[in-house]
Structures are given as structure tokens and as C-alpha cells.
């Protein structure tokens, strides 16, 4: 079988320290908030080092899904370019040092959409 070319990690985007420059490095415009994106995150992280994130996009022609955490040292956390036939429905886990927002960005049909949620990160205790 043919061996497909390995995709190249977009270093410029992953070293950005804010959302605007990460978007620019990806060649993306500012996204528009969309309720067609379902971003599932815990209200309070059970473990800031392992925060489950799942993103489902209900719009047609989804090409990429990105996860950004602007308060982390590097904003872009994950980028999932989707092959044709791959469902716009992914789950992964991220690290968060403190209470902050998580932004899911979806590139679809030549446009950019986003959904944002806060996750509370707490020291815990006191039941």
C-alpha cells in the first residue's frame, strides 16, 4: 500500500501565547460563536491535570477542530484536521492549572465557528 505523507506539526501556531496570534498562525479569521458546536466539559475539574473535553460539530463540511485554552502558557492545545469521512466528534483530555475558559474552534464550509466554556479548577476538600 501507499504510505501517505506524514502531516507536519504546525509549530508556529503551537507556540502562540494568545488566541488572536494562534488564529493568525493557523491562517484563520476570528470565529463566530455557534450553538451547533457541543463542547462538553466538567463544571468543576475532578483533576486539573486530566480534564476530559469532547467536541461535536453539527454543521456541514467540517475540516478542522481546534482546542484553545488562552490562559495556559501556550494557547493552542490541540488541532484535529479531519479527513473526509471522519466524524466531527472527538474527545481528548487537557491540563488546566487554574479556573479558565476552554474554546473549541471549528473550521467548516470556509467559515470559522467557536464555543466557549469555563472550567473551575479547585484545590478541593471540605465535603
Amino acid at each position: 500500500a501507499d504510505v501517505p505523507a506524514k502531516p507536519v506539526w504546525p509549530k508556529d501556531a503551537f507556540t502562540c501565547k494568545d488566541e488572536a496570534s494562534a488564529l493568525k498562525a493557523l491562517g484563520w479569521e476570528a470565529p463566530v460563536a455557534s450553538d451547533k458546536i457541543t463542547l462538553v466539559l466538567p463544571e468543576i475539574a475532578e483533576n486539573g491535570a486530566v480534564v476530559p473535553v469532547s467536541i461535536t460539530a453539527a454543521m456541514p463540511d467540517v475540516r478542522s477542530i481546534a482546542v484553545m485554552i488562552p490562559d495556559n502558557p501556550f494557547t493552542l492545545t490541540a488541532l484535529f484536521p479531519l479527513a473526509a469521512g471522519t466524524a466531527p466528534d472527538i474527545a481528548c483530555r487537557v491540563k488546566m492549572a487554574k479556573t479558565a475558559k476552554v474554546v473549541a474552534i471549528v473550521a467548516a464550509g470556509g467559515k470559522l465557528y467557536s464555543a466557549t466554556r469555563d472550567v473551575k479548577v479547585t484545590l478541593g476538600g471540605c465535603g
Binding site: 502558557p73 484535529f80 479531519l82 483530555r93
Partner: peptide
């Protein structure tokens, strides 16, 4: 069929579902 690009804020022992 699927590519994941990750930064250092992905959790230890990473999990993926698609």
C-alpha cells in the same frame, strides 16, 4: 483517517476518541 496535533497541555497518557 485522523490526525491529532498536540501541544504540551494534553494530559499525561493521552486518550483519544473519534
Amino acid at each position: 483517517v485522523f490526525t491529532a496535533f498536540w501541544g504540551p497541555a494534553i494530559s499525561k497518557d493521552p486518550y483519544l476518541k473519534f
